[in-house]
C-alpha cells in the first residue's frame, strides 16, 4: 500500500512538476535578467497553447513540425510581451514594470476570450510517446511526454546559456548589467531574448499540459503563480535547480494531497514556502542571483 502510494505520488507529481518547472525557468530567466516578476508568464503558456490548437485544427502537423511551430510562436510571443512591457518602460520604476506585466496578463486574457472564447480547449497529444512502467512506477503517456519535453528544454537551455556567446551575454547581464554593458553587450537585447526564451519554454509547457488538462482563458494566473512558487523554491540561480524546484513543488503537492487532504494542500504549501523564504539564508535584499 505504501509503495503504491509512493508510485502514485511520483506519477502525478512528475507530470505537474515538469510543467511547473518549465514555467519556473521562464520566470527565473526574466527575473534574473531584468529583476522583473512576470505576472503574464501563465498567459504566455495560454496564448501559445491556444494558437497551437488552432494550428493543429487547420493543418495536420507531424510531431516535429508541431514542436518547431510551438517554439517559433513562443519566441515571437515572448518578444511581443517584452515590447509591450519592459521594452516601453525601461527607465520606469520596477514596480511600474511589474504592474505592466499584470496589465499585460489582463490584455492577453482578454485576447484569449475574444479570439478563442471561454470554453476550454483540449490540445491533442502532439508527441505520442508510449507509456512506460519502471517497476512499480507507472508513467502514463502524458507524464512521459511532459517529462521528455521538460528535460530536453532544460538541457538545451543550459547548453545555450553556458556555451554560446549570446547565452553567456544573458548571464553576464544577469550578474551585472553595467559591467556587461561596458563589455559591449546590449542589455536591452538580452532582456528581450530572455523574454523570448521564456515564451519558448511556456509554449513547451503548453504542449505538455494541454493534453493532460485543458486550456482555458482563466488558467494563466494559477499556473503563473505555481511557476513563481517553484522558482522561489529553486532559488532563481541555476536552470537545473529551478527546474528541480518545479518538480519538488509538483511532488510536494501530490504528497500533501495523499498524506493530508486536498483541503489543506494550499495552506500547507504556502506556510512551508513562507517558512522557507524567511529561514533560508542568502535571501537578503542584496541576494542577486548568480
Amino acid at each position: 500500500m505504501v509503495i503504491q502510494y509512493l508510485a502514485q505520488i511520483v506519477n502525478s507529481g512528475l507530470a505537474l512538476g515538469a510543467v511547473y518547472g518549465l514555467m519556473a525557468i521562464g520566470f527565473a530567466l526574466i527575473f534574473n535578467s531584468s529583476r522583473l516578476i512576470n505576472f503574464a508568464q501563465g498567459e504566455l503558456l495560454l496564448i501559445g497553447g491556444l494558437t497551437l490548437h488552432s494550428l493543429t485544427q487547420a493543418l495536420h502537423l507531424p510531431p516535429l513540425a508541431a514542436l518547431a511551430a510551438a517554439a517559433i510562436f513562443g519566441y515571437l510571443l515572448g518578444h511581443a510581451l517584452y515590447a509591450s512591457t519592459l521594452g516601453v518602460s525601461i527607465n520606469a520604476s520596477p514596480l511600474r514594470q511589474l504592474m505592466l506585466t499584470v496589465a499585460a496578463s489582463l490584455c492577453w486574457q482578454g485576447v484569449a476570450i475574444v479570439v478563442w472564447g471561454k470554453n476550454p480547449v483540449m490540445l491533442p497529444q502532439l508527441l505520442p510517446l508510449p507509456p512506460v512502467r519502471l517497476g512499480l512506477v507507472f508513467l502514463s503517456q502524458d507524464t512521459l511526454t511532459a517529462l521528455v519535453l521538460a528535460l530536453a528544454s532544460v538541457f538545451f537551455l543550459s547548453a545555450f546559456l553556458s556555451s554560446t556567446r549570446t547565452g553567456r551575454a544573458i548571464r553576464a547581464v544577469s550578474m551585472n548589467p553595467v559591467a556587461a554593458r561596458l563589455q559591449g553587450i546590449r542589455p536591452g537585447q538580452c532582456h528581450a531574448l530572455s523574454f523570448a526564451l521564456a515564451g519558448v519554454l511556456a509554449a513547451m509547457a503548453a504542449m505538455a499540459v494541454g493534453p493532460q488538462t485543458m486550456l482555458r482563458y482563466d488558467m494563466g494566473l494559477g499556473l503563473g503563480l505555481k511557476g513563481f512558487v517553484a522558482a522561489t523554491i529553486g532559488g532563481y540561480a541555476s536552470v537545473p535547480r529551478v527546474f528541480l524546484g518545479g518538480v519538488a513543488l509538483g511532488l510536494a503537492e501530490a504528497a500533501l494531497v495523499l498524506l493530508l487532504s486536498g483541503e489543506l494542500k494550499e495552506t500547507v504549501t504556502y506556510i512551508l514556502l513562507i517558512g522557507l523564504l524567511v529561514l533560508a539564508p542568502g535571501k537578503q535584499e542584496t541576494a542577486h542571483p548568480a
Binding site: R35, I37, L273, K283, T286
Partner: peptide, 13 residues
Amino acid sequence: RLGEGFLAMATLG
C-alpha cells in the same frame, strides 16, 4: 529583510 520579489511572494502567500 526579504528582497522585493521574495517579499511579494511571501505576502501573496
